[in-house]
Amino acid sequence: ADVQWDVSLPWGPTEFHSTNAQKFAEEVKAVTGGAVEMTIHTGGALGIKANESLRAVEDGAVPMAEYAAFQNVGEIPLLGVESIPFLISDYNDLAALMKIVRPVWEAELQKRGQKVLYVVPWPSQNFFTKTPVATLDDLKGVRMRTYDRVTADMVTRLGMVALQMNNPDIVPALASGKLDAVMTSGTTAVAQKYWEFLKHAYNTNHMWASNLMVVNLDEWNRLDPKQQKMIEATAHKLEPQFWEISKAEHAKRMDELRANGMTVEPASDALKTAMREATASMEGEFVTANPAAAPLLDAYHKAVGH
């Protein structure tokens, strides 16, 4: 191959984002007649952490990477817009937001030396707990693992104890009782076999997270325009398929959780109301911190009508 790109992915080799990337690489290789070859390195094998991926691509440490937008808010704060709690209720909302936000993200990322090839969301978010949760009271004092500013804030406002915890600590902490609850997608819950420690799953759908597959611009500009067109077309063709895979994930994973003895329920209205109230001011706070988000969010609210 004329071009050989290493692609860094933090997720394990069997997660759907990884298999998507594999498929993308195969199709690109096919359409470019083998001229552009991508090697998918899963599980962070290249040592590039999820929250350091944007910088790694910008610096040219690695030509391509996939990362979750919200994990790189330290670089571009606007990447956190989709994780404003309860901003997005489903894939249609998310698509509407992406239509408005993605061009802005792409422009920001271009300034940071990278081009977005495709964007694929994680499935809907859930709370996984040891004890049943019907009302807000049931959450008081529950020790929940959080992973960033937004989730830590939200959890604290719900009366829970926000425990920052690194990945290697989570499973032992669940086993020993240091940790009572986690929030994540069904994909991760199944991958980590949470039914071994946690009994209840509540689809809270409190925030959304999308992954960006990006390529370093210097590398990209080295391709001839025909190859660029082919790769763009491949990404354009595959992205809707990848979204369908993401949509199917939630139900599929919830079934697996049920089959392994977990109770899977929608979050009660009382809980959802409480969560919404606790997080109501977060959109305003996000806009205060990032004034550039104001027109985007206005346009989004107009488009989805809520």
Binding site: G74, E75, D148
Partner: peptide, 14 residues
């Protein structure tokens, strides 16, 4: 470069 870009951590304290 980190200083020029103004990179911050993604943790709560940024």
């Amino acid at each position: 470069r980190t200083a020029e870009i103004g990179s911050r951590s993604f943790y709560p304290l940024a």
